[in-house]
Design a binder for these strands. Structure first.
Lengths: 333, 333
DNA sequence: CTGAAAGCGCTAACAA
DNA sequence: TTGTTAGCGCTTTCAG
């Protein structure tokens, strides 16, 4: 593998000149430039980015730390982050934490402060205060949970309002026993969505029945199915359900259908995330649609700004969302 | 950020000793070890992996090059590769090519031979011969398409046989007008699955009707829906369809249902990939289930062996698959 | 405009 | 057992 030195020797110039050509420095004698370019070609020189980075003190890598790639929301988001990062000439290192706190700690710790220029973290189990000690000196942008008190850049939607809108939609349909699936003791977003749910019910003058709030310790299809099974087994089952993500909703729909409960006539279902899966499922899923592309762009952008200017005050970017109304709350197929 | 030198100064020893302690070298005088460990702690030293790698000549990174993370099969596979790589202390850099040939070329080229120890590539548009020139000197393991003539490590299932088994299942159900969705002019796997489809029909003494073979230039849900719409609009529509991936199948089911065609009674559907989505869709999807964990493990393992021993003859690992029979070809819901 | 040389932080050969 | 030192390949003063 040819090095700068090899090229210089072949072209009969110093490494400096070669370096200048490679890095597009303007003032190089045309004759030298020509010879260097020729030598570059014949050697098939490729700069050693590791060495360059060591010298420059940056790596060209950012880490994207997320719970699980099998969760479509994260897969879609990851794809968008990859694209956004590419525009800033960043390569993305994806790390799965599997949602455990150790996973999230280890990941950030193991990369060390040297291999990455920064990290975009979508925390699940991680607590706010972990961040400081965890990634000392690593610029971090946080996704999802909104904790204004933390001095960390953050991007996400207004989860309370989004949940409120979703449940208000069910109310407007005339549903009165509206359940929620996805309550979770330690997840900030879960708490916020639950709050939105409660607000919507209160606004409608509907009581909050505790037995209609189903906990889900994971947000997979299976958990949604199990939660729905529990709700249906109760004395007076719900006539609608707001699920805290699309995966839960898909599982809930499946469990309902298996028991002969028709969606949406017997049971209206709203999800959250607007994954492509939900748009094609039968029935298609009404869902809260965060602007994922905006989230990805904002996160990468925020990270870039923080890298360039480490001392700037942390920023909280709120991205838009909409409610995507589909068959699971309509008459349709 | 503390360096080795800082630690050495603080502990009153040489960098060598500190390096020895950090790297777990056994023979260090206990007294020195103690002092170094203390200095390590008070400085909060973290090794600069970039520098270490520059010295060692390896990077600790592997690239996983795939078309799109929004495709659940790739998301699931990526998750498994991440896990398998972790066991070999590799970090994974995920690159999306968006299925274009340029994307695949650029990706491999841009990383350069220096930032990654190797690459696992799931090609879509890339042609066999591209590989040599593309990644000169980079150890590469190829996923998916099986091209024995290429001197490159490779892992995948027997696509011809898998397709044959899938279609034979439809035949056994008594279906006689069995369509295929997913024919593609340039994809090796598409050609193989089509071959398996033809073999199964031939074995059953069924004719191959060209109008029952639907092309799909992409393998997304939308493409499946469109293909199914075309098939249903024909004079004598099929009574079963074999889709070359689950996404196509999901789209096909949706298009059928929208037109009042019942699955499976009017139209049996088989997919390919065994994504979680298919297991929870309504009706749940019969599908060819490749052992994705085995693929991920084999790929990482093959890559490790190639990195260690660059001159070994290329290997072709064939991973197992099974046919997962669910509601879309059964009586069920 | 270009060359020589220092040095990013680390490992390893060689000495002591 | 530990210290000294030479690089890994690159960028970047500093001279010239």
């Amino acid at each position: 593998m040819a090095t700068l030195k090899d090229v210089a020797a072949l072209a009969g110039v110093s490494v400096k000149t070669v370096s200048n050509v490679v890095n597009g420095y303007a003032f190089v004698k045309p004759e030298n430039r020509r010879r260097v370019e020729e030598a570059l070609l014949t050697t098939g020189y490729r700069p050693n980015l590791g060495a360059r980075n060591l010298r420059r003190g940056r790596t060209g890598f950012v880490a994207l730390v997320l719970p699980e790639l099998v969760v479509p929301y994260f897969a879609e988001l990851a794809g968008l982050v990859l694209g956004a990062a590419q525009e800033h000439e960043w390569n993305v290192l994806i790390e799965q934490t599997l949602g455990t706190r150790e996973g999230e700690r280890d990941t950030l710790a193991s990369l060390g402060p040297h291999m990455i220029d920064g990290a975009i973290v979508s925390p699940e189990a991680l607590e706010a205060r972990d961040f400081g000690e965890l990634a000392p000196g690593i610029p971090v942008v946080m996704l999802g949970e909104h904790s204004v008190d933390l001095p960390i850049d953050h991007v996400g939607i207004d989860n309370v309002e989004a949940a409120r809108v979703a449940v208000a939609h069910l109310v407007a349909l005339g549903r009165t026993r509206i359940a929620a699936i996805g309550a979770h003791p330690h997840r900030g977003t879960a708490a916020q969505r639950l709050a939105g749910y409660r607000i919507a019910l209160a606004e409608a003058g509907l009581p909050v029945h505790d037995e209609l709030v189903a906990t889900a310790l994971n947000y997979h299809r299976r958990d949604g199915a199990e939660a729905m099974a529990r709700l249906l087994a109760a004395d007076s089952p719900p006539d609608a359900v707001f699920c805290f993500n699309d995966l839960l909703a898909v599982g809930a729909v499946r469990a309902a259908v298996e028991r002969g409960v028709r969606v949406p006539s017997d049971m209206a279902v709203v999800g959250f995330d607007n994954t492509e899966e939900g748009a094609y499922s039968v029935p298609s899923l009404t869902t809260v649609a965060p602007d994922k592309a905006a989230i990805a762009r904002a996160a990468v952008d925020l990270l870039r700004r923080r890298v360039e200017e480490p001392e700037r005050p942390p920023e909280h970017v709120r991205t838009p969302f909409s409610l995507e109304i589909r068959e699971s709350t309509r008459g349709g197929a």
